[in-house]
Design a protein around this nucleic acid. Sequence first.
DNA 1: CTGAAAGCGCTAACAT
DNA 2: ATGTTAGCGCTTTCAG
Lengths: 342, 342
Amino acid sequence: MSKNVTIVDIAKEAGVSISTVSRVLTGNARVNKEKEIEVKRVIKKYNFKPNILARGLINSHSNLIGILTADIRNPFYSTLFVNCEQSALEAGYSLMLCNSFSDRLNEFTLIDKLVQQKVDAIILIGGACDELKTDSEFAQKITRISQSIPVVTVGHLSGTNCTSILINMEKVMNLVMDFLTKNSHIKKIAFAGGSSTVASTNTMRTVFKKLLKKHHLEYFPEFDIQNERYDEDGGYESMNEILKKDSHPDAVIAVNDISAAGIIRSIHEHNLRIPQDISVISFGNTYLSSLLNPSLTTVGCNFRTFGGEIIKTALSLIKKEPVQKEILIEPSLTIRNSCIAE
Amino acid sequence: MSKNVTIVDIAKEAGVSISTVSRVLTGNARVNKEKEIEVKRVIKKYNFKPNILARGLINSHSNLIGILTADIRNPFYSTLFVNCEQSALEAGYSLMLCNSFSDRLNEFTLIDKLVQQKVDAIILIGGACDELKTDSEFAQKITRISQSIPVVTVGHLSGTNCTSILINMEKVMNLVMDFLTKNSHIKKIAFAGGSSTVASTNTMRTVFKKLLKKHHLEYFPEFDIQNERYDEDGGYESMNEILKKDSHPDAVIAVNDISAAGIIRSIHEHNLRIPQDISVISFGNTYLSSLLNPSLTTVGCNFRTFGGEIIKTALSLIKKEPVQKEILIEPSLTIRNSCIAE
DNA sequence: CTGAAAGCGCTAACAT
DNA sequence: ATGTTAGCGCTTTCAG
C-alpha cells in the first residue's frame, strides 16, 4: 500500500510551491517556462495524476457523467451507451451507468445516487422519460435537480424544460410506410406491440394511421395490437393475437428489434413464411437485426451520431453554453431480408 | 443554481455541532437520542446527502466500483453487469463502466481513468484477462495497482495474484458432451469458432478432445475451426469452413450465443435443418438463446449468482477481509430447440 | 510570475 | 455524549 504521491511531493521535488504545480496542472495561469518543464518532468517521473476528489471538492466537479437507462441489456441502449462513452472519453469524462428497469422507485433512488455522486451531468434514456404522461412528482424532482446539474433526456420529459434529444419518429414511420407501400402486394398492414402510454410508440401509431389514409389503405383495428412489454414475449403475444383471425396481414410493423424476434417466432409457429407470406419491418437497427433469421429490414439511427449528439449537448450544458432545447436525430432505412421484394 | 446545503447548515438548524451531525450520518459513535432525532428531521427536511467527494477525500473512498468489460453490447456482459449492479447497489456502491473493445491501448487508458477516479475496487471482465498468454506489461500494471486498489478478474490474469472468479469450463464441456453423446445418432461433433489464445476457449477445446476420446468418438481436425472473432461473423465463417467438406457433422459446439447465430445462418444457407440435420449447442445462456430461431440449447451460469459473487468478493477485498484466491462458478444446461431429441 | 494562505465539505482524533 | 480542531489534496484569491 504505497503512499500516494500528491501535489506536495511534486512541488518539493521540483523545488517550487504547490501553487506553481497546480498552475501547470490546470493551465489556468502563466508559469515560467523552465519551471514548467521541470514540474512536468517530475509529474511524468511519478506518473502523478491529481486527485479528482480533491479537485472536485473545490469546483463541485466529478468528471463523471451519469447515465440512467431503462435496461442496458437492450441492444439499443447498450449500443447507444458505447457511443456515448466514446464521445465522453474524448472529452475527458467517464460514465457512471445505472439501470432503472423502468421501475419508478429505482428511478428516484438512482437519480439521487447520481446527484450524490456529484456527476457533472445526467443523461436520462428511456424509462420515465419516454412516457406520454410524465409522473409529475418525477418531473418536479428533475426540474429541481436540473437547476444545479444539467439534465439531458433522450425522449421527452414533459413538465420539465430539460434539453431533449429525440428521434424523429414521424420520419421513422414515413420511411417504414413509404417502403411498405412501394410494394403493391402489401395491402393489409399490422402494428404489433408497444403501448400508447409510451410517447414514441404513440407517435408511431398516430402517424401510422395517418399514413394508411394517405396511401388509401384500410385500417384494421384487429391488426393493431398494443402490449406493455417491449421484449420478445411482448412481440410474440401481440403477433399471436393478430394471427388469431382467419386472414393474416401482408406486413407487420414491430416497435423494436427485440419484439420483432417474438413476432418472427409467432409467424413461424403459425406455419407462415417471412417474407413470402408476411413481411416484417422493425425500428432500431441494432445488431439484432442482422442476427435474427430472417435478418430484419429496419429503420434506425446512426448510433455514432446519436451518442455524439447526446454527449455534445451535455458538455455544452456543463460549460453553460447555449444549446437547442430539442435536437432531432434523423433515421434511415436499412433493407435486409424480412420484407418481400417488389 | 441554489446553494448546496451542507453539514454546517444542518448543524446550525438542528442546534448542534457539525460533529454531531457527522456522527448521526456515519453512525460511528453514540449520540443523544433526542438530538439524533432532531438532526435526522432536518436532514430529511432538506433531503440532505453528504458530499461523497468530501467524504472520499478523507478516506480515499469514492463509493464507486469500476468495471472494465470488453464490450457491454455483448449480452453476456450486459447481463452480468446488471446483476453486478444490483448487488453493488444493495451494498451502497455504484458502478462506473468502461468498455475496452479488447483494445490493448484502451485497457491501459481506462484502467488509469478508474484509478484516477479513485474507485474503491476494479473489476476486470473479459479482454486482457482472458488471454492465455497475458501481456506482461499489463500484468505488471495491474499488480502495481492492486497494491492500493482491490482488483477482481473475471477470467484469469496470469502474472498477477488478483482474486479471480472463473466459470468452471471443464464442467461446461462435460455438460455439453454428456448431453450430445447421450444421443446415439450423434457421432461427428464439430467445434466452431473461438481462438486458442483465449484461456477459456482453450480449456473448452482441450476438454473437448479429451472427452471425445472418453466417449470413443473420432476427432476430425476439419471440424475443429478456430476464429479470432467471437461475433456473428466469426461463427458464420467457421461454420462455412466446416460445411465445405462433403459430409457434415451431426452436432456443432459454439463458443458463445452470438457466434451461434452465425452458425445457424451458415447451416440454413447450406440448406440443412437444425436440429434434424445438425444439432447446435452453445455456451452462454444469454437472452439471445431464446431469441434465436431455433432457440438454443446452451450451457450457462446463473447470472444472479455470478454477479453476486463478483461483487461480494470485491466488497470483501475492500473491507480487507480474507477471500479465496479463486472462485469457481458452476454452470448448468438449459435445453431448448437446437439439439435433436433422442 | 510566484508563494502563502484560505477553504471546498467532511471525518476523526482530541479535549472536554 | 458533544464541541473544537486538524487535516484529506487540491484550486484560487491575495500579496508581493
